[in-house]
Design a binder for these strands. Structure first.
Lengths: 223, 223
DNA sequence: TTTCGTTCGTTGGAAATCCAACCGATAAGA
DNA sequence: TCTTATCGGTTGGATTTCCAACGAACGAAA
């Protein structure tokens, strides 16, 4: 267990918790490590869960099966990411996806109740954990809202501009770098890469934006 | 203040709090009521905020101005809904939208720190409030994830089927009712109403689904 | 019953997107 | 250097979506 402490201390859930507190804390939380060989299913879609999972080793896939058998990968989870926190904290209980180990993996499970129930020994880190959890959920909310705002735009052009303006706003400047290449940006905005490239070229030709690789500039607003 | 207690007791933030506790609680939280005449701006986009707002009377609009002056309504907030909780709890501080009173409105403001900092008098409701807040954020997460899953589908047909399958899953049956009319469903999936109607007709003709008004049946899976 | 408003399906032409393919530029490796 | 792989822009035709408009069905109000 101890060998994972350095990793765990970088997890958003445990930020602000001193390394010296991990022993007490994990014991108080009743956290348990479980190993899954490559290919094994951690959760089946629809399973009832009460624990938050934190991958400490390996790699997981969250997958969704549509009713006629096609499975699509929703996300990949790598150390030290969490999964299941929204379902568990929301009290929904039933996971909407299946979780599969794509490599031999080790997962730290923590019972949600043990986090939010301040224990009799009044461990100091409960408050910290709770604030961390709230922050994690809230930030995820903001990320999703932002993305939603972009992809609900009608056209590829509007999606792109919505995204670029947001980036400019965050950078506080008309020039900025974006963290995606074209394909990744297309995926994020859920548009075609070629259509995206075409729109970008058009906007550049119209003098609305300029760019080179991942560096962008917003030159003029308007149609 | 007291006249709002019945309303507040139906707010997700205060579920499980006894009516008798409101006096103590609101005082302990340092909650304050502020009134805004119709048309007045509550927050300007980019303002730094540390309080969660809870509308107890009136109606607010969250609006976003794109850089060339067009403003679009992101959401309407009506009693007893909250706003700003994701930003405040996420520690981002700067609101990404402007908040405007569309009618004479009264808002209850609560400092986030006072919620998560258990007070010296150890008020029993802090723990409850925190759990409520976590649940609210987590459920919003799930709602958004679900919607995102539908909207990121490529075509109108796939968006529709993704939504309908989700509804069937939730209902635990191949037949179910949906809470939207056609226009609302189109807005939710961010597609055209007419294109949606057309796809629905086609799917019905192909024997994939059947429907009448808001009542649907999934008959056959596959292309 | 008549009238009016709303909802929903349909349609046709314009516009946008998808898809596969190709090419040039650049970087990495042999 | 030559080869290979990746990335990004472009292109053209098939497909889908958009948009405005219309009409049928239904329910509420007069």
């Amino acid at each position: 267990m101890k060998k994972y402490y350095p990793l765990l201390s970088h997890s958003p859930l445990f930020t602000g918790i001193g390394p010296g507190d991990f022993d007490t804390m994990l014991h108080c939380l009743g956290a348990s490590l479980r190993s899954y060989p490559k290919g094994q299913t951690v959760y089946f879609e629809g399973d009832t869960v009460t624990e938050i999972g934190l991958v400490v080793s390996g790699r997981l896939h969250l997958v969704k099966d549509d009713v006629w058998g096609n499975t699509s990968i929703v996300t990949e989870i790598a150390p030290p990411e969490m999964f299941g926190e929204a379902v568990v904290c929301g009290g929904t209980s039933r996971v909407p996806v299946s979780v599969i180990a794509k490599e031999d993996s080790v997962i730290l499970f923590i019972d949600y109740k043990r986090i939010v129930t301040t224990c009799s020994s009044a461990c100091a880190f409960h408050a910290k954990l709770i604030r961390n959890m709230i922050r994690i959920l809230a930030q995820k909310n903001i990320l999703m809202s932002t993305k939603m705002e972009h992809i609900t735009q009608r056209s590829t052009k509007e999606k792109l501009l919505s995204y670029l303006m947001e980036q400019a706003r965050q950078a506080g400047s008309r020039t900025f770098d974006i963290p995606y290449n074209r394909q990744e940006l297309a995926d994020y905005l859920s548009v075609e890469r070629s259509a995206l490239s075409a729109e970008m070229s058009k906007l550049k030709a119209d003098g609305v934006i300029d760019y080179k690789k991942n560096h962008f500039e917003i030159r003029r607003e308007g149609a």
